[in-house]
């Protein structure tokens, strides 16, 4: 089926007056078919009746951990950016000293303390 015909089908499905009952079959013939991968039914059987229950919990745990990690990562990045902006506003620079909260006279005062001159 040509792309223009597919587009026509899509537009047809959006028209409330059209009967859409035949569209899925036509699309399927055109190659627009959906199914789950091999072993799908077996995985469900395992989850329901097998010993894979622990595996399921493991997978869910990993998924939740992933989501939690993103949350923490996003918060961390946001905090770093805010900190950098506030330092830049307060110190007018991004020098190492400004990150440590030290003024420009820091080096001199250290030298003074060490040498006494």
């Amino acid at each position: 089926m040509k792309p223009s015909e597919i587009k026509k089908l899509i537009t047809g499905a959006l028209d409330e007056r059209n009967d859409t009952e035949e569209i899925p079959a036509i699309l399927e013939d055109a190659g627009v078919s959906y199914d789950f991968r091999e072993g799908f039914a077996e995985k469900i059987a395992d989850r329901l009746f097998g010993s894979v229950l622990t595996l399921k919990r493991d997978t869910e745990f990993k998924r939740n951990l992933n989501y939690a990690f993103y949350r923490i990562a996003i918060t961390g990045v946001a905090a770093i950016i805010i900190l950098m902006i506030s330092i830049f506003i307060m110190q007018d620079s991004f020098s190492f000293n400004s990150f440590l909260g030290l003024g420009d006279s820091y080096d001199e005062s250290i030298v003074y303390l060490i040498t006494g001159n």
């Binding site: 899509i10 499905a13 959006l14 409330e16 859409t20 009952e21 569209i23 899925p24 699309l27």
Partner: peptide, 12 residues
């Protein structure tokens, strides 16, 4: 809604 109509063939 489009998926229901186009992929499943349901009426509105």
């Amino acid at each position: 809604i489009v998926a229901m109509r186009m992929l499943q063939g349901y009426s509105t």
